[in-house]
Design a protein around this nucleic acid. Structure first.
Lengths: 193, 193
DNA sequence: TTTATTTCTTGCCAATTGACAAGTGGCAAT
DNA sequence: ATTGCCACTTGTCAATTGGCAAGAAATAAA
């Protein structure tokens, strides 16, 4: 397996000489997850960040009533982890599970620190990655505030149609902030139109 | 005016020798905003980050129907800016306005870059600040998904009661993702109890 | 003070969504 | 084939919320 996709991804997030991207990529090692494998479980301190080359992850937490709430879906290519647990070195409150077989490249926290303090381009890359994730989250928040459940559903199916092949509708429902019952009704209405 | 509060804030986010915190704080210069002053307007590229020593900011954007939607409130002490615009050097989609007279310390993007690449402690501080903001946003997102409007209101009044003295209820309503009418009814119901 | 403007509240009705329960269909183990 | 287990759909009813409009209250302007 080659690291070409990782190198391309790094350069896509932050343009830099290929030699620098290769230098950064040298700190990553390959790891595979099978469908339904846990990438991280609640209570663990996240030890690695993952470049997801192919496949997708689901992130979920358990609410006060004991129900699973899907909080995020990572679809390749992306850097995936629990930022809070990883960077603050605290136990995760979320679970991350592979929805499909996945090809990943991982980097440990210690190696990431070395890169961060010795490779200026990596610093910029890392910051940009955080900004991008912040931005995605903010967009989703705006959607929750401004859009109806039906509009949020339509947006999701437009932006990420593959998701519907890879996870249960009930997981998508909790991600959209509605019950599976409501989602079912919304889908029914949209079929009519 | 002394920079002591800024120095304390830096050390609170990321413990470090006081000399380092002072070195970082040297890049910040004082600036005041009067109530209703714009800190940033839609379309501008954010040129500075602000340490808000006292006072508070409101962040809002305009939705498709032309309505103001409050997306965030910054209350001192905090580092406040439009991260997306500031770090990506792109026009802001949000407006930031001072809700009260504010005492701030600002740092330009260029100076921040210098700190970022020359002061290891600042790198860690900056990253931790981004993580903290990401975490706040994620908590708010979870609230939008898991809590009722009434619960979100109660949480806000618990965590940030001063806010209700400093901005109109309609702004709080849009922040909570409901109409001002609904907020009014929720408040009425809670008075009964 | 008077006037004008904005904010907040309230009532009415409609649309959305949730809670609960029953029923259908797919899938896997036996 | 049977059984059990989930995921999904559907119906009924209740609660929440929005849209609209009118009026009250607070604030700003003249």
């Amino acid at each position: 397996m080659s690291k070409q996709q990782l190198i391309d991804f790094i350069q896509h997030i932050l343009p830099m000489p290929v030699a620098k991207a290769e230098l950064i990529s040298a700190y990553f090692t390959e790891i595979h997850f099978a469908k339904n494998d846990f990438v991280l479980q609640e209570g663990q301190v996240s030890s690695h960040s993952y470049f997801l080359e192919s496949g997708c992850f689901r992130v979920y937490s358990i609410d006060v009533d004991g129900n699973e709430v899907s909080t995020e879906f990572f679809t390749a290519p992306i850097i995936a982890n629990d930022f809070l647990s990883f960077f603050k070195r605290i136990p995760a409150t979320d679970n991350i599970v592979a929805l499909t077989n996945c090809v990943c490249w991982k980097i440990s926290f210690d190696d990431l620190q070395i890169c961060f303090h010795t490779i200026p381009e990596f610093r910029e890359f890392g910051r940009m990655m955080l900004i991008n994730n912040y931005s995605r989250l903010k967009q989703r928040m705006l959607g929750m505030v401004q859009l109806t459940a039906e509009q949020r559903y339509q947006k999701l199916i437009e932006v990420n149609p593959e998701l519907f092949q890879q996870t249960a509708l009930k997981n998508i429902a909790s991600y959209l902030g509605i019950t599976d019952t409501s989602l079912s009704r919304i889908r029914k209405e949209l079929v009519k139109k």
